[in-house]
């Protein structure tokens, strides 16, 4: 079993209205020193395989096919932990 943790965020070139709103709210609260906020989605996948390379390939395919819309989003595989080679 491998556990994959994935972050999906809007590309830098895409304006993130939610991030902007949070940034403004921080200013309203008097919390300064934050230059930018980006909002994303976090996925945890439990993969039924004992092969690390296979697990990673699987995750990338899942991201490309479904979890990520490459027109506006990018993803980062933050960790891939588990028992196996």
């Amino acid at each position: 079993m491998f556990k994959a943790k994935i972050n999906v965020t809007l590309k830098e070139s895409v304006l993130d209205p939610q991030g902007k709103t949070i940034l403004n709210a921080l200013g309203t609260l008097g919390i300064n020193g934050v230059k930018d906020v980006r909002v994303g989605k976090y996925f945890v996948l439990n993969l039924d395989t004992s092969n690390r390379a296979q697990a990673e390939e699987h995750v990338r395919k899942i991201c490309d096919k479904l979890l990520v819309n490459p027109v506006i989003e990018k993803y980062e595989l933050i960790s891939l932990e588990g028992e196996g080679r």
Binding site: L10, V14, L15, P17, N69, V71, I72
Partner: peptide, 17 residues
């Protein structure tokens, strides 16, 4: 249609949220 690739581009949240 955008997600299916039958039209180009994507939708974002309204600017006003």
């Amino acid at each position: 249609l955008l997600e299916a690739g039958l039209l180009p581009g994507a939708m974002l949240r309204n600017q006003s949220l």
